[in-house]
Structures are given as C-alpha cells and as structure tokens.
C-alpha cells in the first residue's frame, strides 16, 4: 500500500515538473535581466543569488533595484515589497481550497514557492492538486529563477534584443494558455476573466492604485460580483421552480 502511495506521489511530482516547464522557460529572460540589472545596481553575485533564493518574487525584486538606485531606505523597500506581494495571500487562500489534505508542514514548506505563475498552473489544473505536483512545479520554476538570476549577473549581458523582446511575451502567453481551455468550457470563467481584466486595466492605467493593490482589488471585485450574480440567478431559478 505504502509503495503504491509513494509511486503515486512520484508520478504526481513528475507531472508537476512537466507542468512547470513553461514557467521555467518564461522565467529565463526575466531572471537573466534581473541578474544583469542587479549587477548594474551594485549588488554582488552573492547578494543577487541570495535575493532570488530567499524572496522568489519577480516584480518585487525588480522594484527593489530601482528603489535602491533612487537611494530609498530599506524600510520603505520592505514595505513596498509587502504591498506588491500581498496578492499572494488571496492566491494561497484560493489554492488552500484545492490542494489535497496533507500535513500542514508540507503546505507551510511549499507555500514559499507560490508565485503568480506557479499559482496559475496549480489552480487551473483539473481536479485536486497533490503535494507532489506542487513540489514539482515549484522546483522547476525556482531553479530557473535562481540559476538564471546568477547567470545574468555572471555574463553581464542580456539576450539579443529581438529575442529578449519576443521572449517577454512568454509568461503572458502561458497565462492565456492556462485560461483559454477553462473559458471554452464555462461562461462563468469568461465573465470572471473579462471583468478582472477590465477592472485591472482601469485601476492601473488611470493610476488609481499601486499595481499590487490593483490586481487584488480587480480580482476580488470580479470574484464577488460574478459569485453574487450566479447566486441570484440560482435563487431565481429556484423560485421559478416553486
């Protein structure tokens, strides 16, 4: 029995590794550029690697570099990081409903690796998300992020401009690739995505709020509105039946 369970976890881990490949590819140009910019901002190779190892959050790491170059104090940089990354709270709360019941210690461990990308891959997976799957997705993503940050610092140059430009679309294309199959099956998914895209565009482009809050507000607003509409429609249907 336990052999069977171990075998299952191993194949789930492999599935996770496979599902993480697009993230690994997508992180490549971004991490490379991060390493390059970190070098330009005066961070040593070790500091660059340490940041990618311990923080593992692309947008916040980029912002910290530009704040450093403005001479911003570290307290303000840490506060900004917190605000930019608070969206992960919502993602973890959502994922918590979908992952298999397992030891809390494992969840506390793999929650370190929840990024926009690993969350998107796990949350759009069919059925329950196993612990093995989470570890697989995160291992590929994390390795790509850390190794390529170091590589960017070491070689001190980025990819040829055209390649750099076209690879910049990779993570967005991945998000589209994860979203579309669910959109085809479910009108609710279409409503959620379009509504959140519209809210986030308004909040960001009109500079109504910082990007971190914009994503959180757009996501929550759309999730609540759509859920309320669905609930009301269900109630109506129920009343009609009676």
């Amino acid at each position: 029995m336990s052999d069977l369970a171990i075998g299952k976890q191993a194949s789930e881990f492999r599935k996770g590794l496979q599902a993480g490949i697009s993230i690994g590819v997508g992180y490549f140009p971004i991490a490379l550029t991060f390493g390059l910019l970190a070098k330009g901002s005066g961070l040593s190779l070790y500091e660059t690697l340490l940041m990618s190892l311990l923080v593992f959050a692309g947008a916040a790491q980029y912002i910290s570099l530009s704040l450093l170059s403005f001479g911003t104090g570290i307290f303000e940089i840490i506060l900004t990081t917190f605000i930019v990354n608070i969206r992960h709270f919502l993602m973890s709360a959502s994922l918590n409903e979908k992952v298999e019941e397992d030891r809390l210690l494992y969840k506390i461990f793999y929650s370190f690796g929840i990024t926009d990308e690993t969350f998107s891959v796990a949350a759009t997976k069919e059925g329950t998300v196993t612990t093995g799957f989470m570890f697989g997705v995160i291992l590929v993503s994390y390795s790509s992020w850390v190794v390529n940050s170091g590589l960017g610092h070491l070689i001190g140059a980025s990819l040829p401009q055209t390649l750099q430009d076209s690879m910049g679309v990779a993570l967005y294309a991945m998000f589209i690739g994860l979203l579309v199959p669910s959109m085809r099956k479910n009108i609710k998914v279409v409503m959620l995505a379009i509504l959140a895209a519209a809210f986030n565009s308004i909040f960001t482009l009109e500079k109504l709020m910082a990007p971190g809050w914009a994503i959180v507000s757009a996501t929550l607003l759309s999730a609540i509105i759509v859920e309320s509409v669905v609930m009301l429609a269900k109630k109506r249907g129920h009343f009609n039946e009676e």
Binding site: A93, D116, A123, T124, K188, L192, A193, I215, A223, V226
Partner: peptide
C-alpha cells in the same frame, strides 16, 4: 469566491 479567484487573477495578470 475563492474558486473564482484563479480565473479572475488570470484576467488581471494578462
């Protein structure tokens, strides 16, 4: 609401 979050997040991330 939490089940809706992934699809809304994806819209906002794109």
């Amino acid at each position: 609401i939490l089940k809706n979050v992934p699809f809304a997040t994806l819209g906002a991330l794109i």
